[in-house]
């Protein structure tokens, strides 16, 4: 067993609300009040139209695997018991893409284009981390 905890997210000021929502098991992203688009990672101006008028809004958590990799090498001791594990680039139904983990499926069975849904991994340190499972 590895006795090292997985790294807790250390939020930038712009993403504090993302992690607060995640603790409530909600996937929330900034959504532009001017053009209506979502973006990720969180920043304080819309990268589509540069409006600074936005609100945090819950998204569906639905998406698909745009691409993924399978870690065989241990880069951090906390993941020593996890290898092989998947890190995926998820394209959310609302458009933004995010790096995340994949759960509930064997790494060798993950495919590009696979439909997924967000689930929440409650970590011992108090953070809840959105990851994705087959839809």
């Amino acid at each position: 067993m590895s006795d090292t905890a997985k790294p807790e997210p250390r939020p930038a000021p712009e993403s504090v609300l993302f992690w607060e929502a995640a603790r409530r098991h909600k996937l929330e992203l900034p959504q532009c009040s001017a053009c209506g688009k979502h973006w990720f990672p969180p920043t304080r101006a819309c990268p589509h139209c540069l409006s600074a008028d936005f609100a945090w809004s819950e998204v569906s958590g639905r998406g698909e695997v745009f691409s993924f990799v399978i870690y065989d090498r241990v880069y951090h001791p906390a993941f020593a018991d996890e290898v092989p594990y998947v890190v995926a680039l998820i394209e959310l139904a609302e458009g933004p893409r995010m790096i995340s983990g994949i759960t509930g499926i064997a790494p060798d069975d993950v495919r590009c284009g696979m439909k997924v849904r967000a689930v929440f991994d409650d970590r011992p340190g108090g953070a809840s981390v959105p990851v994705f499972a087959p839809a």
């Binding site: 790294p7 250390r10 939020p11 930038a12 993403s15 990672p41 870690y71 890190v87 790096i99 995340s100």
Partner: peptide
């Protein structure tokens, strides 16, 4: 510091 390391 986020959106990566927590997923390995």
């Amino acid at each position: 510091s986020e959106f990566g390391p927590e997923h390995g």
